[in-house]
Simulated scan of single mutants.
Amino acid sequence: MSEPRLRVGVVGAGRIADFVHLPSLRLLPELCEVVAVASRDPDRARTFAGRWAVPRVHATWQALLDDAGVDAVVVCPPSDLNYAVASAAIEAGKHVLCEKPLAISYPEARGLAEAARGSPRVHMVAFTFRFAAALRYLRRLVAEEHFGEIRHWRMAYFNDGQLDPGAPFTWRHQRARGGAGILADMGSHMIDMARYLLGEITAVSAVSRGYVGERPLAGGPGRGRVETPDACAFVAEFASGVIGTFDLSRAVAGRGGTGRPQYQGVEVHGTEGAAVYELIRPFHLQVSLGRAMARRQHWATVEVPLDLQVYPGSPRNPRTDDPL
Results as ranks from 00 to 15, higher is better:
residue 32 C to T: 07
residue 126 A to Y: 02
residue 120 P to F: 09
residue 47 T to F: 10
residue 54 V to A: 02
residue 17 A to F: 06
residue 152 H to A: 12
residue 92 A to Q: 05
residue 252 V to S: 13
residue 168 P to S: 08
residue 89 A to Y: 01
residue 310 V to C: 15
residue 263 Y to N: 01
residue 237 E to K: 00
residue 278 E to F: 00
residue 195 R to I: 15
residue 271 T to F: 11
residue 271 T to V: 10
residue 118 G to R: 13
residue 293 M to T: 05
residue 54 V to Y: 07
residue 212 V to I: 13
residue 268 V to C: 08
residue 150 I to C: 14
residue 36 A to I: 06
residue 256 G to Y: 05
residue 216 P to A: 13
residue 79 S to G: 12
residue 162 Q to V: 02
residue 19 F to Y: 03
residue 222 G to S: 13
residue 320 T to H: 13
residue 112 L to N: 08
residue 16 I to S: 07
residue 44 R to Y: 04
residue 226 V to I: 03
residue 143 A to M: 08
residue 229 P to W: 12
residue 200 E to Q: 10
residue 233 A to F: 11
residue 324 L to M: 11
residue 208 S to Q: 15
residue 125 V to D: 07
residue 102 L to H: 05
residue 17 A to T: 02
residue 30 E to F: 00
residue 295 R to N: 08
residue 123 H to C: 15
residue 215 R to V: 09
residue 166 G to W: 07
residue 200 E to R: 08
residue 70 V to I: 09
residue 114 E to Y: 06
residue 131 F to C: 03
residue 135 L to K: 00
residue 105 S to K: 09
residue 190 M to P: 07
residue 233 A to I: 10
residue 39 S to V: 02
residue 40 R to C: 12
residue 119 S to Y: 09
residue 288 S to E: 12
residue 151 R to Q: 09
residue 319 R to S: 11
residue 283 F to G: 01
residue 288 S to R: 04
residue 251 A to N: 13
residue 35 V to W: 02
residue 38 A to C: 00
residue 308 L to M: 13
residue 240 S to E: 13
residue 115 A to S: 14
residue 302 V to W: 05
residue 187 G to M: 13
residue 150 I to F: 04
residue 111 G to S: 12
residue 257 G to C: 10
residue 277 Y to F: 15
residue 142 V to L: 11
residue 183 L to P: 05
residue 320 T to D: 12
residue 284 H to E: 15
residue 126 A to W: 01
residue 126 A to R: 00
residue 224 G to Q: 05
residue 198 L to T: 03
residue 52 W to C: 12
residue 145 E to W: 01
residue 150 I to N: 06
residue 279 L to S: 04
residue 32 C to W: 01
residue 64 L to C: 02
residue 275 A to W: 08
residue 291 R to Q: 15
residue 186 M to P: 01
residue 277 Y to P: 04
residue 6 L to E: 14
residue 53 A to Q: 14
residue 100 K to T: 01
residue 266 V to S: 04
residue 92 A to G: 06
residue 39 S to K: 03
